[in-house]
Design a protein around this nucleic acid. Sequence first.
RNA 1: GCCCGGGUGGCGGAAUUGGCAUACGCGCAACACUUAAAAUGUUGUGCCCAAAAGGCUUGCGGGUUCGAGUCCCGCCCCGGGCACCA
Length: 842
Amino acid sequence: MNEYDSQSVEAKWQKRWEEERLFAPREETTGRKMYVLDMFPYPSGDGLHVGHVKIYTAADVVSRYLRMKGMNVLHPTGWDAFGLPTENTAIKKKVHPADLTKQNIERFKKQMQAVGYSYDWDREINTSDPDYYRWTQWIFIKLFNMGLAYEATIPINWCPSCKTGLANEEVEDGNCERCGTVVVKKPIRQWMLKITKYADRLLQGLDGLDWPKAVPEMQRNWIGRSEGAEVDFKVEGTREAIKVFTTRLDTIYGTTYLVLAPEHELVLKLVNGQMDGVVLGNKDEVQAYVMQVKDRSDRDRVADSEIKSGVEMKGLMVSNPVNRQLIPVWVADYVLGSYGTGAVMAVPAHDERDFMFAKQHQLPILQVIQPKIAKGNAQLPYTGEGVLINADEQSGLKSEVARETLVKVLQLKGEGRKKVNYFLRDWVFSRQRYWGEPIPIIHCEECGAVPVPEEDLPVRLPDIKEYEPTGTGESPLASAADWIEVKCPNCPRIGKRETNTMPQWAGSSWYWLRYLDPTNREELASREIMDKWLPVDLYVGGAEHAVLHLLYARFWNMALFDQGVVAHEEPFTRFRAVGLLLGEDGQKMSKSRGNVINPDTVISRVGADALRVYVMFMGPFSNAMPWSETSLIGVSRFLRRVWKRVGSLIDKLSEQDSADMSYVLHDTIKRVSEGIEQFKFNTAVAALMEMLNKLEEGEGVSRSTLEAFVLMLAPLAPHMAEELWEQLGHPESLIYRAWPKLNQSILAAAVKRIAVQVNGKVRGEIDMVPGMAQSKAEELARLEKNVAKYLGASIVKKVVYVEGRMLNFVVENGENPKDETKEVPAYRQAGETNPKSEISKF
RNA sequence: GCCCGGGUGGCGGAAUUGGCAUACGCGCAACACUUAAAAUGUUGUGCCCAAAAGGCUUGCGGGUUCGAGUCCCGCCCCGGGCACCA
């Protein structure tokens, strides 16, 4: 047989798969539908990354496996084509982002096809295509009509380098997620999406998902639900009250002062002298403090949390609703304007931040919770639960109980109520950049913000000359004068188009729906088709999107569900996250480090199959893993051996398998199937390697066994498998050939070598025929020289026999000193199992 | 600080979920082929001991069990996420 030529074999099969359109779903199959989705790539100028290859190969292996299992598989891909990097490169190279995107897509597509992915390319979508973003805009209008999209002028995160506003989710550690520049606060007019309205449902939906544990956990933390109470502290001398939020209402008797965030509206009012009944004694001081704090970025504000600055608002006093005590009010930037009510009741004895602040500003500290197990005096601040002291009639109550009691008391007086707060903020949805979906809104002096009528969609991105970001908070679209001016849909006036564009995340927040019906011009997708295919059965991608794409997509899907567009609330039933593929030096791959592995080079050197099998074999799918050149060579060696061995066996096949070979086959079927189903691809590959080792040793290989081996290789190394399949005399592709059938009884009937232990230590082995009685096994075991030696003349207290596993003689003598000294527990004497053990439950 | 995930040979890792720890691969060593090297093949390869016999070994310490990498309690270390969220 010839040396394997990966280049020509791979080209041959890729061409054939494409010509025969083999990867479209097969409606005639009787198996269930399976929607296998991977996160579509952003077609950057860098080309396909081997990290993509790891994700896409996993999804491809599963898709190919499921087809062979007789299921109707939908496996599409497309392009997440709007976004900043392309726009930035386009500006630098002085080309249009659309042209650049087109080039990048062409390159990506070629690269992806070279790996041999089984996508149904007839469903390819592109988020920057007007026929696609028309529906992104359509959804936006739905959200607008549902009251979920609104305009607001608030201080938002602004990246001075990208010259655009960002969502909270796009800020990492105070830096822009894209470029790493320190984010500043900038008040500009924004479109916001009311994701907070879905906070509870986004939280609840997580419970039913088959996702890696960490991802729902991250979303839970991000949503940050906390239950507590809102309490009104009346401002002395006025009818007004300051609302605070607390999760520890039980500590309210220990409130020795109140703190307002510098952004709190009352601060501004008092500085301007606009409040009747209160005159600030230190107006200038307060104003100076607020001004000073305003310029600090969030990161600076948090940077030195040990030092808590603040100023007392002299002349402002509030009364504690539980005991009418008058307490002072401070303004300090350790309280955030954007969470809760922007004001807190400070309980220095039971909150670390309040404690620090009180110490630094000499404010009184009053303990009101006594730890339950009182070891003298509690170390303050004490933040645990306990019993109330110094709390009038509530003294003696447990803190958990006091929270409930006090909220009822305050509720009766109308001065407090239960309240749930979230860390989640509304989604800042507009970007002051060119390369994104235009927001389909027309501003009319008379009618306000009016959605573009459905029949006028899409609102096309105008072709303009100057699309560099302005940096002023205006989008570059603002310069497209004749595009902007448009008749108001509601009245005869001339209105102005919205010039902000949507963020990168918009197009990917619903793309899995469009694959189902990519050319539909009437609807985003036909309801009938959606009902057939949704939800997505398997989603594969990066965990870095845990609180970005995966949260946004769930939100949009829920909103579409509420509109009756889709039938499921959750879009992705099962999600699997890839582990990062690092450079050989263990560092993240980057051009500047020079450790980037290019898939094209790997394919030309060892072939696509070797690349595929390698990324599957390198370790558990979810582990971060450095690239290893030697392991890649190892895998390519394995494939060469497969080629040679299968080729030479074709002429030497036996009528029947040897018993040994038949066991190996079914053991391999089991392990490869389970490996693929459970995303343990490394063990699936290992099983195939072991089977090859057996094929190399053995005579007694039947045609069907050899064919089964080739079929099991097919999802992982499809090109070589097809070529071998053809050489085995099958002219048609193996894509829809049935997966080898597992015969459990062959595994069960096999003779096994089992361990014989004496007091838990292995002293010998015996051959165990299935169904062998314990007495027979014991008899065989005693014949083993080494076993006999250890048994000696000692008394056998007990024999533990697990069929097919092991045989253990428990003997009573000096061999295991533990036995002599140990007391036999009561439950054992009674012949019962350990009540603490798991086993006793069954 | 809080919340997840994880510690198994020189390295990546496997272990039917409580039943022969170290499968598979890499690396290394010896041998074969070769003038030589590469490639390929064969054999060996957890640690201690010259070897056999034997003993030890899944981050550390305890416990449950006939039997623990796996279960329970307490610590240590590494990775990730969030972080003045009241």
